[in-house]
Amino acid sequence: MLTFHQFHPLTLTLYYLFLLVILWLFKAPIVIFLLFISLFLFWSISQNRKSILNELVFVASLSGLIMLFTIYFYHNGATPIFYLNDQAVTTEVIFYSIVMAVAVAATWITWQALIISFPMKKIIYLTSNRSITLAIALSNFVRWIPNGKIQFQKVMEAQQSIGYFSSQSKFERMYKTVKIWMNSYYNAFENTFQKSAVMHERGFKSGKRTHFQHYRFRKTDCIIVVSILITFFIMVINYAQLRYYFFPLRKEMTVEPIYWLVFVFISLPIIIQIKGWVQWHYYKSKI
């Protein structure tokens, strides 16, 4: 059964790059929302309930902060609703802040999905014979965030157990949490250099490499790559028409014909996973 992760690393790279470029270049709200939902569902398939809940809390907090920040500092738009520090807060800004918050959340979840699709071996496979430095940097960068998360959980647990968070002040506890968070990700970043050292010890930068596992570029990979390139080309040509704008008045939300193709691409991972799941259960029923 073909799962989404089994596509060629090049196909996956192009796919995720395409999603991120479309998201930030065109900023179409419908695309952004659908991207977030689809990739969140795709990511959740491989997670337990606690991780999903934690992720939702994190994403909601991050989005909330971005919305507040945007509303506080942006004063564009033509339809004021209320005034903050003598500055107008408009419906356009509110809408913009919601869309941007979801865009950041969608970027974050795309990154999480990418980490699952790209274990170290795929990154090394893609990059090592082109640039060893890039291979090390990318592979360690991709592992940085998961390792940072693990380190953060360990340190939080240890610090909670010795009473570090026993203060009554919420602000102080929040400050300490942020401090530990920064410390953990910094340590995880430092540890990536240690991994580099271990890789060098095993001859990583010593010359041309061979590969234990080769990834086949199948017909499906070909179709996806060509479709993505064509879609992107069409979208770039029609950039003026397709790009969404928020100010001074926000653009009417319409679904351009090309966006249907984008929706298909966005839903691709979850469609393939569901198909694989159905197929597997069908074969299982025959055992």
Partner: peptide, 30 residues
């Protein structure tokens, strides 16, 4: 701290890949 990859097989193969051993020989040695 010494383990680099997420799966055992790839971890075993890594060093051999770095010194340019052919895929067939890698499989035999592993």
């Amino acid at each position: 701290k010494q383990i680099i990859f997420e799966d055992v097989l790839q971890e075993l193969a890594f060093g051999l890949e770095n010194i340019g051993v052919s895929q067939d020989e890698m499989k035999i040695r592993i």
